[in-house]
Structure formats: structure tokens, C-alpha cells
Design a protein around this nucleic acid. Structure first.
Lengths: 213, 213
DNA sequence: TTAGAAATAGGGGTTTTTCCCCTTTTAAAA
DNA sequence: TTTTAAAAGGGGAAAAACCCCTATTTCTAA
């Protein structure tokens, strides 16, 4: 019987190997290879040395090229490959971003083995796998916030620098802008992000992975 | 041939199941059970319904009762059980704390399958498994800093509040102290932690897991 | 036992940074 | 051509940072 080819993408070698071994015990699936990050995956897909997978089990958080970027690339260049997100994160923004990037399902790492098998089978059969939890989340996100806050490139640069011990004056120097312009960015972000002071900016940046300590 | 009984402790069910399955393919080992956290482990050990393991593969970060607490408990009540820490964290403090708690080895989740097998075998044979990396780290921690900065209870309370949008005046209120005393704490921490301003305090607190955003 | 650290608590005051409300200029977009 | 946006800036108030100072208490070592 034909086994559906699967890739496992996770920066933690031991985990990707273990997951791969587990998937190989499933009747209908066969792990062709594991990848350490998005870049690694891109290379393996483009090199054509190994057959492309039907499904990719993709970790969200990876160094170099994360799951979201990798999924975006796949949606663009290989829309026929289904991406199943596999993550420890159950926070709304991670799930939303993966779904937006084109993932056909979202699976938490504290699921049962049987759930993984079911998710893989449903992805092959229906083209997607969605739990009630993710469905509920999507409804919530659409009704409550519409679209999450969109930051401009310079605002992100500023936000990253605001997470250091530099004074605003020094940040202005770094960004080659007048301190008064920085004043504007700051005040603008205060209202936009609904925070009161610089500590608020720092916490926001870290929560939203704009800055990683 | 006798197989050494192993427990796998990790809050991510899928990962602990996958790791367990992998360990079961090793010649000399047999996973008796998996646990979702330290509490779960404690119950299984004390209930005596299943034979105690020789080795426990222990995740560091878990809700309810983390790997460090669980290892401390084991060192106290079942020193004959060897704990191998298995973590994504490669930061110094996590490793140090696990070793101090009584772990006989530290393994990163991005190791190879063969490394895990080797670590398990060496733990049985020698009673420990230490890589050069961990050894180097321990030497560094002893020579460089002696003991990492020791914060007092009140300093920690202050530091946590400094990570919020509260002003120092409000922090003083919360701690039932004069703003001037808070001034003292702040200035003291500036020199102690070698930071220049409040952002420095926030970043320090987050890096050292005193505050979690 | 007593002098002297060391930790805790606080006072007063100066300088710098931060914050908030404004306006103007310039450039791009509709 | 009007509208929008980014960039730059003025004035002023509040907050934070940094300075030097004193008075307890507690512990410790001469």
C-alpha cells in the first residue's frame, strides 16, 4: 500500500527524530526526512533530490527561518504541500499567524499520539484538520479585534532599540532621526499599543516577539 | 536480557510518547511510564503500583511542578534514581539549577538519537553523563561569578513590580514603603546588576526568569 | 564588650529623561 | 489639488535617575 510521504521540521533534532519514528509506525505515513529549520526545508524541496512530501509537520518556533516564514514560502511556491503546525504555543497570535501563512491545521505538542495520526489522516482526506479550539479562536479573533496591530518597519526598529538601555536621544542618533521624531514614534506607539510608558513598550515587544532578551 | 526501567517526564504528551517510543527501541532500556509533570511523577513513585525506574528522563520546564523541584524531591526521597535532564534550555542558570538539584546529566533536545542512547548507557554504567559543554559551564560558573547575584526577597518583589507600568511611587505604595526607600532599592540594583536604567532592570528580570511577560 | 560593618529605612535636592500637548514643513498619494 | 503621512520641533509638566546625607537595627569580630 502507498504511504503518504511526510517531512518533519523541528530545530530540536531529538524531537524531530522521535516524532518521525512515531509517524513511521502509522499505517499510511512515511517520514522521508527531517529538517532543522525553514532554510533546511527550502533547500530539500528545491533540490528535488528527494520526493516532495504531501504533508509537513512544522514546528512554529525555530531559529534562522521559523515555521511562519517557511509556511508562507510553501504557500507561494508549493501550495500542493499541506502544512500541519505542531507547536507548544497555544497563544492566539501564533496560531493565527500560522493559519494566515497557509497552515491547514494546528496541533499542540501535548496532544495524544492518536490525535497526531487522526490529524495526518484528515489532512490527506479533507485537505485540512481543524479542532473546535482553533475554530473558536478564529471566530474570536475576527469578532473581537478584527486585525491585530500592524507596525511599520521603523516602528519595529524603534521598539527594538527601546528594549535596550539607550536613552531616546541615543536611539534618535542610531536611527539618524531627530529626538523629536522619536518623541512622535513613542507617543504614537503608546496610544497604538495601549501602554503608558517605556516599560509597557518593552513588555509588548517581548510578548509579541519583536524583541527577544 | 534485563532492560533498565525508565520514566519519561514531560508536559507535552506527544513528545514524551515519542521519546518513550524511541527509548523502547534501545537495546537496554524500557520505558515503564510517562508523566505529565512532577506531581504526576511523585504520585507514581509513591503509589508503588509500578516498579521504580533506574533512570528518569526529566524535562526542565513544566507547569505545576517543574523539573528542578521534582529532581530535588527525588534526591531527597529516592537518591538511587538517576535523573537525566532533557531540555530545550541551554542557558547556564537552568543547567546549573538542575545539576544542583541532583541531576546526573544534562541533555539538550537538539541532540542526536545516538547521544540519548549513549547518555542512558553511561548513566547506568558510571552513574552520570556529563558532556564537555556542561563541564565547561560548571567551571565557568565557579570561577567567574562564584555565586550568581543573590537577590533578597524585597529586591525580587521590587524587580517584579518594576517590570510593570507602575511608577516608582506606585511601587512604593504597593510595597508599603516610602518612595525614597524604593529609590534606594533601585539605585542599589543598578550597581548590583550592572544596568543603567529601568529598562535594564526589566531585561535582567526577564532573562533571569524573575518576571515572565 | 564594644567598635564597626552591613543592612534597612528614609530625607533633600539637582539633573536628566520622559511624556503630553501643540505647530510647521515637506513629501507623497488620491 | 486637497489630503495624508512622516519628520521635525517648541513649551512645559511630571517622572525617573542620580547625588549626598542621617538614623536605626543587627550581626560580627577585635
Amino acid at each position: 500500500m502507498h504511504k503518504h510521504p511526510v517531512f518533519v521540521v523541528d530545530d530540536h533534532t531529538l524531537l524531530s527524530q522521535a516524532i518521525a519514528q512515531m509517524v513511521n509506525t502509522f499505517e499510511n505515513f512515511n517520514v522521508v526526512t527531517t529538517c532543522k529549520n525553514g532554510n533546511d526545508l527550502m533547500q530539500k524541496i528545491t533540490s528535488k533530490e528527494i520526493p516532495n512530501p504531501e504533508v509537513i509537520l512544522m514546528d512554529v518556533n525555530m531559529p534562522i527561518m521559523n515555521g511562519i516564514e517557511a509556511t508562507e514560502w510553501l504557500s507561494k511556491h508549493h501550495p500542493e504541500i499541506k502544512v500541519l503546525a505542531l507547536s507548544v504555543e497555544d497563544d492566539d497570535s501564533s496560531i493565527l499567524r500560522m493559519i494566515k501563512a497557509g497552515a491547514v491545521g494546528y496541533l499542540l505538542k501535548d496532544s495524544e499520539k492518536s490525535v497526531l495520526e487522526k490529524a495526518l489522516n484528515e489532512t490527506i482526506k479533507n485537505g485540512y484538520y481543524h479542532t473546535k479550539e482553533v475554530a473558536n479562536l478564529l471566530v474570536r479573533s475576527l469578532t473581537k479585534e478584527e486585525s491585530s496591530i500592524q507596525l511599520k518597519e521603523k516602528e519595529i526598529t524603534f521598539l527594538k532599540l527601546a528594549c535596550t538601555e539607550l536613552t531616546y536621544k541615543e536611539i534618535a542618533d542610531r536611527m539618524c532621526l531627530s529626538p523629536k521624531t522619536i518623541d512622535g514614534y513613542r507617543d504614537n506607539l503608546f496610544t497604538k499599543l495601549d501602554v503608558k510608558n517605556r516599560v509597557g513598550l518593552v513588555i509588548y515587544a517581548i510578548k509579541n516577539k519583536i524583541y527577544t532578551p
